[in-house]
Design a protein around this nucleic acid. Structure first.
Lengths: 196, 196
DNA sequence: TCATTTAATGACTCCTTACTCACTGACTGT
DNA sequence: ACAGTCAGTGAGTAAGGAGTCATTAAATGA
């Protein structure tokens, strides 16, 4: 690989990284391509040399995030994980990309439809792992016998609610860092069949 | 009241109603003031004759929604309501404004901070009623003894999740019309202390 | 060494959109 | 009846942002 293509690749990565930073802070919709160029330290036109359009740039960032999340979840998923461990794996993966992921789910309807596929992909991965461990626990009568979709939506809804209100729950940092364990513990208590 | 002020008031209401329709369909951010003017059947400039700015118009619509929701909830709330009835009251009120309310919660961070106050106001009303009935049930050991904030957030998170994905769950109509009863029943089952 | 290629630049065009204002004509009070 | 008022109009202005392209200069290879 010669110096020219090396440099080109380098610049592409700089723009992508700059876009990630900007989008993580300001969301996908508001920031202009000018802002991304400035953050990357390149001219405005250079952005369009590497990405056909703003939409393609946004999609590249989202695609990256999807890859990162699903691979993290897959890597740290061992067959035979407990419910606690599966939930933990999921939240740890999101925590590492909390800000960007939060903007993704909040602005999803305003983003190109390809972005929706990415989110569906992420949720499928966690749904699969959760279903695995939950149906086993249901058989053993250890958790309540409610439909999986309802339980899944309750869990995702809860997490997304905390993410969407992260600046309220954790003004200067990660909500998940603060509430992760508590959310898992409480959610499991809610599922449990207990007679105290 | 003379004909002139009557006409003026009439036009104001037409613009506000048009804005409600447009925002319910397209959200608060995307549509232009031109679009609202067209829907209302008035000239573009007329919008600014009645509302200082786009922001003020949006706030007026949101303020209206807040009033409508909180009064509905207050009216159909009787002391001594069961948990089922309290949840029902809340969802019925939202169902009547489902589309607009959904856009409000989804686009909240992009809206002026006054909008946040409105949402907090709505949630305070339901939180108050829910706390009332839940703490009683906790004393009677009929539901699990988890912190109220957690239970409240789980409930709101669940409802918001269904609202945010309404086009997925109910492509051509109201999600709540379809899932309301099921959501309440399942959520109550989740709370219950039972030993089957 | 030097002709050719190409990554990068940034001024420019085009477009959209919020908001203004000089003007029109219907209503009001006398 | 008529001078004054004011709701409504819509062409016009200014700002901002996406995407283009002629130009520059560094790298390449013969």
């Amino acid at each position: 690989m010669n110096k020219r293509t090396q440099q080109r690749e380098q610049t592409r990565i700089e723009i992508l990284t700059a876009a990630e930073h900007i989008y993580a802070v300001h969301g996908f919709i508001r920031p202009s391509t000018q802002m991304v160029a400035k953050e990357a330290g390149v001219a405005h036109g250079t952005v369009f040399l590497h990405f056909q359009s703003q939409e393609k740039l946004i999609l590249a960032v989202i695609e990256n995030l999807g890859q990162s999340l699903t691979s993290q979840i897959h890597e740290s998923s061992v067959p035979g994980h407990s419910l606690n461990e599966v939930l933990q794996t999921y939240l740890t993966a999101i925590e590492a990309n909390e800000s960007l992921y939060t903007h993704l789910i909040m602005e999803l309807p305003q983003l190109p439809k390809e972005a929706q596929q990415t989110v569906i992909g992420i949720q499928s991965v966690i749904a699969h792992h959760l279903d695995q461990v939950m149906s086993q626990l249901k058989k053993e009568k250890k958790i309540k016998d409610l439909s999986f979709p309802f339980l899944f939506n309750t869990w995702i809804g809860l997490i997304h609610y905390y993410l969407m209100n992260r600046r309220l729950f954790a003004p200067h940092g990660s909500v998940l860092a603060v509430y992760k364990d508590q959310l898992i513990a409480n959610f499991i208590t809610l599922l449990e069949v207990d007679c105290t």
